[in-house]
Amino acid sequence: MTQSIYRIQYNRQLTADVWEMRLEGDTGAITAPGQFINIRLDGLFLRRPISICDWDGQGITIIYKVVGKGTAALGGMEQGQELDVLCGLGNGFDVSRCGERTLVIGGGVGVPPMYGLAKALLRAGKTPVAILGFNKKEEIFYEDRFRELGIETTVTTVDGSYGVKGFVTDALPEEYGYFCACGPLPMLKAVYNAAATSGLLSFEERMGCGFGACMGCSCRTKYGNKRICKDGPVLEKEEIIW
């Protein structure tokens, strides 16, 4: 983990309430896709954890949905402004565990970390297959970005206004070797129950520190108590206790 100052390169709206922000700064602490950053914001005591969507040697891309004070403050920020960020938090997805043909399943704001994961799987010579779930057509983002990677991409919408009607579980292919998922808890549970293979699931929890000190985000697993922020957010399917 590192603490440093990042400069906003751009902050642009993707949908009515989802934004994409590019932060320029040190990315040396990032070890895996699915890790997150923790952002300090003026006037708010606790930092705000946001998953890393994509990164390179110069900076980080994050995607966030405006749901509360913290994300509203982020949405109001402009190019050139600086942010105090803890970077490289959490375990992230272990690409070496993923099979040859791995399903990359994202729901809503669970989609962003799956983009970085899809790129990492491609770099590792594997074949990711993306399933992206949204409520309706107007909420879809990053479909084109996944397709630009040249990977098989299916979009589902709950109301059927675009792509496959239904949930991500309605679009599971016949054959795959592994799965990785990030999204709302009901989606994770549905994927867990429907999946034919082993896999990794990324969880969300209210956090205090984000780096394992406060025990604010602990959960029970079959492998013992874990801190979502430090030992997670990615857990193995086999260890999860619902």
């Binding site: 005591f45 205090g208 406060c214 025990m215 602990s218 029970r220």
Partner: peptide, 12 residues
């Protein structure tokens, strides 16, 4: 193990 989640909330 402690209490169930959520265990953390922000205040002014």
């Amino acid at each position: 193990f402690g209490n169930p989640a959520p265990r953390i909330a922000e205040t002014p």
